[in-house]
Write a protein that binds this DNA or RNA. Structure first.
Length: 261
DNA sequence: ATGCCTTGTTTGACAAGA
């Protein structure tokens, strides 16, 4: 069996102990982290190594930043999303090959700040992601694209009133770009197993969103076809949001059966 | 009503998050 998860931790220095507890309890093979909010040199590599995990880190000062933790041999395949460049650079993608799969860890731009240029940058990221996914499909590669997509794919993926109808997370172009990934043949792991119902991965810190269960489903794991055949479970770890000093996101955990043969 | 928290940085108000 293989277990992996994605988690926007909103600062790794603030959430280091939460992550250590999660690793000890769940022992994922691969954990994709977003919004580490630190430079690569400051990431607590030694702390996670002592827990049995290697860190692959793409950081930047103050904002963004992604990392992958794994307890297996791996090779780094990308430290940026091919075809998406910004000035200054933004640390929003890292990818490894591990146990026969490619894991692409992404932190998609929110799209609500920076005016129309900010939103265009979000759509450009999604376009580049679709092209990269298509390339891997054509190459016959088995892969998982997981992370904070900052998209609620349908109206069932956010609590009534949690967002305005023109928010970048629910805008028709954002949803169309997400559907394009599905039309390529990718499987939304959570919805494949739970076609209906509310499965949020984020609750705002403000306005008692957690207490009112006013959440969003914006963290996703998309699986290439042969990987989807192996899908066993997919579920957000809701309990993380109720802990002291939590991230505003919780992990989304996925398990796969062993590869055939 | 772009605020209601939380984070990092420019250490005292910002910007950004979603």
């Amino acid at each position: 069996m293989m277990k992996f998860a994605t988690w926007n931790v909103n600062s790794i220095r603030q959430r280091q102990d939460h992550v250590l507890d999660y690793l000890a309890r769940e022992q994922p093979d691969v954990l994709a982290l977003q919004e580490i909010k630190c430079q690569t040199e400051v990431f607590p590599v030694d702390v996670f190594r002592a827990a049995g995990y290697d860190s692959i880190v793409v950081g930047q000062k103050s904002y963004n930043g992604v990392a992958i933790l794994t307890r297996h041999p791996h090779e780094v395949t990308h430290t940026a999303l091919p075809g998406w460049e910004t000035d200054p650079a933004q640390a929003r993608y890292v990818e490894i090959r591990c146990r026969g799969l490619v894991f692409g860890n992404l932190y998609l731009p929110n799209g609500n700040s920076g005016g129309s240029a900010g939103y265009d940058s979000k759509l450009a990221f999604m376009e580049a992601l679709a092209l990269h996914a298509r390339g891997m499909l054509l190459a016959g590669q088995d892969f998982v694209l997981l992370g904070d997509y900052n998209v609620c794919p349908t109206d069932e993926d956010y609590a009534p009133g949690a967002l305005s109808p023109d928010d970048a997370l629910v805008r028709p172009q954002s949803r169309a770009a997400f559907r394009r990934l599905l039309w390529l043949g990718l499987t939304d792991a959570l919805r494949a197993l739970h076609p209906v119902g509310r499965f949020y991965t984020f609750w705002d810190y403000q306005a008692a969103a957690w207490q009112r269960d006013s959440g969003l489903r914006i963290d996703h794991a998309l699986l290439s076809p042969r990987v989807a055949e192996r899908l066993l479970t997919a579920l957000p770890a809701r309990d993380e949001r109720g802990k002291p000093q939590p991230s505003d996101h919780v992990p989304l955990a996925v398990t796969l059966a062993d590869a055939p043969g």
